[in-house]
Design a protein around this nucleic acid. Structure first.
Lengths: 129, 129
DNA sequence: GTATACCTTTGAGCGCGCTCAAAGGCAAGC
DNA sequence: GCTTGCCTTTGAGCGCGCTCAAAGGTATAC
């Protein structure tokens, strides 16, 4: 039988890149379901917890606000009846991220032009010395 | 002779997308050089001001912090002797933005996979009804 | 000349996403 | 059994990037 490894808060922090403070904070605000505890009250994280945290990390890394992630987590708690609603949220988010990517690329290009301009100025500087 | 149009704070706000509050704030913290005034003390923005603000906007849109922008603005005030230093800052920023772009694309792909997964779940749901 | 709609400055306040402090309990080593 | 270093909860604090409030001056219309 496959035994799931249970992780301490330190271990899950290391694996997910979140701080232990942030892990407790995310639980407090409902981003994570109430995490299982040992007899003495210490948190123990399951592989499912880990997968969910890593998904939250991707939402966060793409700029989703905590409020939106809370909405998503709430729907998830309600079960499979909310799958469509969750997909809609992700699709809206996807569209936003794609737009931001385009803008980012466009702004990056402008900055790259500026860099070229500075290079030319530096070369002129050298030429007249 | 080409006459430069001088713009009121409202006009420059509309053109650059910054609020009038933010324009005054940027000036206070040294992102903008002291802007010219009318006799009665009202700000009047030049085309050069406008170009600089639009450049700041691109730095901001690509995630440069205000502190970094202040450094850049300080170098700019010191004149052409700092061109090389400014280029270095922009190149470092460029590298960071490129990395963030890659991460963003990778995270977006994961989210897109999740969307596909949700679609499949929805179809299964329909099939069993 | 007065209403109203702008402008000025300075300093305070806010929303976000954490981050930390306080006070106390638990686990493992010696 | 005591030390060291972890864990718990609750509530306060912080840094960032604005955003607004207060108090007062100015410009234009009527």
């Amino acid at each position: 039988m496959y035994m799931e490894k249970e992780l301490t808060i330190q271990e899950i922090a290391k694996l997910t890149g979140l701080s232990v403070h942030t892990l407790r904070y995310y639980e407090r605000i409902g981003l994570l379901d109430h995490v299982a505890r040992t007899n003495s009250g210490y948190r123990k994280y399951s592989d499912a917890d880990r997968a969910w945290i890593e998904f939250l990390n991707r939402l966060r890394a793409t700029g989703m606000t905590i409020r939106k992630m809370q909405q998503f987590a709430d729907l998830r708690r309600k079960g499979s009846a909310t799958i469509h609603e969750r997909r809609v949220i992700l699709e809206e988010h996807q569209a936003e991220v794609r737009m931001r990517l385009l803008e980012l690329q466009s702004n990056l290009e402008s900055i790259e032009h500026k860099i070229v301009h500075y290079k030319e100025l530096e070369e002129d500087e050298l030429a007249t010395k």
